[in-house]
């Protein structure tokens, strides 16, 4: 299950399942639909509900980043569990996106940065 919330030009994507090769195709498609549904400038991934992620998740986040970056948008992430954070750190994802304590803080910082 993935929940979507729009707040102005910000899209908050809350993923509530394990992210692997099996689940990530559907998640990707839904996110891309949501991004294109409105003129999204900021994408915030809420990982509070993600207890497992393998390297498929890296590809998923990277792909969304590329799409957002093309349109001068930003990507941020909140709610990383230690095991998921380990994958983010190892793959260098923090070089392209920032982690925030919660959605509110991410909204404030990302919107200000743009």
């Amino acid at each position: 299950m993935t929940d979507f919330k729009f707040n102005g030009s910000t899209l908050i994507v809350k993923i509530n399942e394990e992210i692997d090769h099996h689940t990530c195709d559907l998640i990707k498609n839904k996110i891309d639909l949501a991004i294109n549904f409105r003129n999204t400038k900021h994408l915030i991934f809420d990982f509070t509900g993600v207890n497992f992620m393998d390297s498929s998740g890296i590809g998923m986040v990277m792909g969304r980043y590329k799409n957002m970056h093309k349109n001068h948008g930003t990507v941020a992430v909140v709610g990383l569990k230690p095991t998921v954070k380990k994958i983010f750190t190892m793959s260098g994802l923090f070089k392209i996106l920032s982690e925030y304590k919660n959605v509110e803080e991410a909204m404030k910082s990302e919107v200000k940065m743009a």
């Binding site: 393998d54 390297s55 890296i58 590809g59 994958i87 190892m90």
Partner: peptide, 10 residues
């Protein structure tokens, strides 16, 4: 396929 190429590294 948007694979990260990190499988073996992990």
């Amino acid at each position: 396929l948007e694979r990260s190429g990190m499988g073996f590294t992990i």
